[in-house]
């Protein structure tokens, strides 16, 4: 009995010291070496600070819009819609998003809308859109802002982020950075 319990207690204490103490310290220490000390990448613009990797709602037509969010871009309650692909309510919602998009962008053809602009992301906070999703909004923004389409096209090309190691995932664009650059273009 004594032979078994004492080593067990010692092992427990050692594990507490290692996993609760040392491991946390190591993680915290690595975080101190990263930009902004592990508190998330921020972007400062016009005296305001934004989190660069948290999506925001750009409902104004003069900005590129983010992907739809199932949690209304609430960063404290990240979640997806969890709707099944055959759910009739969900498909009606997607159809509604397509129709809304067509109202705001009357100059484009429906087949140009990429699927990421009408489906909610898993986190509800996806900061990126696909390249096609940015291109499809060029005509609307060019008309409202009075900037030539070629200029916006160039801006988009400059903001394309390559996939990790050139392998994982499609090419993407950070919506917030693109919109800030768009504001600076004037």
């Amino acid at each position: 009995m004594k032979n078994n319990i004492l080593p067990a207690i010692r092992l427990t204490l050692l594990c507490i010291a290692l996993l609760v103490g040392a491991y946390t310290l190591v993680v915290w220490g690595i975080a101190q070496l990263t930009p902004n000390k592990g508190k998330g990448k921020t972007i400062t613009h016009d005296g305001k600070t934004f989190y660069g990797n948290i999506a925001q709602n750009f409902s104004d037509d003069k900005y590129f819009s983010s992907r739809p969010s199932a949690v209304a871009y609430n960063a404290a309650g990240s979640a997806g819609s969890n709707k099944s692909p055959s759910n009739a309510d969900y498909l009606a919602e997607v159809q509604g998003r397509i129709d809304t998009f067509m109202v705001h962008n009357p100059d484009i053809d429906k087949s140009e809308i990429p699927v990421d602009l009408v489906t909610a992301s898993g986190s509800g906070l996806d900061p990126h859109i696909s390249v096609q999703a940015a291109k499809v909004q060029i005509k609307r923004i060019s008309k409202i802002r009075g900037i030539s389409e070629a200029d916006i096209q160039q801006l988009i090309s400059a903001h394309i982020e390559k996939p990790l190691l050139g392998l994982f995932g499609p090419e993407k664009i950070n919506v917030l950075q693109l919109n800030i650059a768009l504001d600076n273009l004037k």
Partner: peptide
């Protein structure tokens, strides 16, 4: 396929519940 029938470009795949950076 149900979203593809709505006539939009689904070349990115089934993006509901997925992040762009992961694909």
């Amino acid at each position: 396929p149900a979203i593809e029938k709505m006539g939009i470009n689904t070349s990115l795949g089934a993006m509901e519940g997925k992040e762009i950076r992961i694909g």
